[in-house]
Design a protein around this nucleic acid. Sequence first.
DNA 1: CGGTTCCTTGAGAGAACTCAACGTCGGTGG
DNA 2: CCACCGACGTTGAGTTCTCTCAAGGAACCG
Lengths: 246, 246
Amino acid sequence: MPFDLSPPRRVSPDCRMCPVQGCLARGADTANQWRAMVGTLPSLMPSGQPLIRAGEPLLNLYSVRAGCIKSCTVDAEGKEHVRAFHFPGDLVGLDALGERVATAQALAVSPSQVCAASVTSVLARLADDPGVSRRLFDQIRRELRLSLALSGDYTADQRVAAFLLYLRRRLGAWDELLRVPMTRRDIGSYLRLATETVCRVLTRFEQKGWLQSQDKRIRLLDLAALQTLAEPVGLIDEEFSLALAA
Amino acid sequence: MPFDLSPPRRVSPDCRMCPVQGCLARGADTANQWRAMVGTLPSLMPSGQPLIRAGEPLLNLYSVRAGCIKSCTVDAEGKEHVRAFHFPGDLVGLDALGERVATAQALAVSPSQVCAASVTSVLARLADDPGVSRRLFDQIRRELRLSLALSGDYTADQRVAAFLLYLRRRLGAWDELLRVPMTRRDIGSYLRLATETVCRVLTRFEQKGWLQSQDKRIRLLDLAALQTLAEPVGLIDEEFSLALAA
DNA sequence: CGGTTCCTTGAGAGAACTCAACGTCGGTGG
DNA sequence: CCACCGACGTTGAGTTCTCTCAAGGAACCG
């Protein structure tokens, strides 16, 4: 156990200085309003630190402020399935909305920071604050759409290409250098591919001159080729830009 | 075009007599409250009749009262992907929440009947009425979980077994005789299998004595065998019974 | 009745998986 | 300081599962 299992230290957040777009609190009008929603801000979480444990009642939603959180389930055979990666601006815990227990566990893939917002306070503002309800349902719709994209029957090449472009958008790699936070195994679990297949596809793309891959650093060289391949998957929805601009 | 493309005739619903469990209006306390939410009730829709067209702004959620609705998307290659089947008690249109346009089209698989509830009126009651918010988020969670279940990398046998048990629960086949409303092609599209694979699996199950299959009538003979096979998929969540009992 | 759609079965091909081996990296402890 | 260990990444060979292509029969509708 290399990480601390005790709850992370919590400090009070200051949403006025927060650069995260798309956060729930961003829809609130005044300081008092977001204070009512966003209660605490766990301090920096090291890689591997659990945020949500499966089976626990979930009273909070978490908004990712920095880093990367993965949520995953463990099936009856004991195999872990990565269900989603959450990047800054994403909400964690939507699958337990309605004050039920969490079905998926969530843990930090890279050093991360999240803000907690109590479910009841979020629900209480849904009717009054159109910004909050819009952001919440944007998140839900995005999550549904990501699941849908991965549900299609696409080839390994299409999946990996779509995932790379998705990472590019979420990580904000303007110079096309991706610092991939998760392991090949996690990527494969998320895309429903064997670890080796992910490697092979990356190698194939590199041989075609579409990218350069060195472990966790991947430089994209031919975006057009990747986009052509990834287009049918639709993992990168056009609404990201809209949501971020709003 | 065998079906009528004009909007279905609308009549006023009477929720007091409605037997559908899990409907949003079921959480409302008085007649006036559900009247504000559930505005109109389309008359009987024949098979193939569209309920939602992709790209249209969606102002209503629909609660299935009878029959079966499928929502599906068409990807860039023109292939249709069945995204979900909706049975009585299910909501249709969740992916367009937040007053956006619909991404999926929805149409009747078998003769169906749905109730319309305006999005704004549902959102307006979320804070006041815990029953409504609970039912809404139950639906969202269920939809997320179904997507998750199908996202796993399972064999064709596992998928079909899980789907049969899912159908059994949703159709309420107490004598284990399922009247499967959708085609093999729809099943395959939903489970990400070729039509022929679905057939082959059913034939295989029949040879093992697990079921009897005659076109749209399937009689389940060995539930235990199917459940063992389907267990890792988790398509049938244990909360169905809880949600229905509430 | 035709015509269309759906269901079923067969044969062959291809994509991805499993099994296996090897190199690298980072952490641990002798 | 160095050997060791485990996790990760990469590559190869063989296998298996599912798809594609093809055809025939059944059911439904005009």
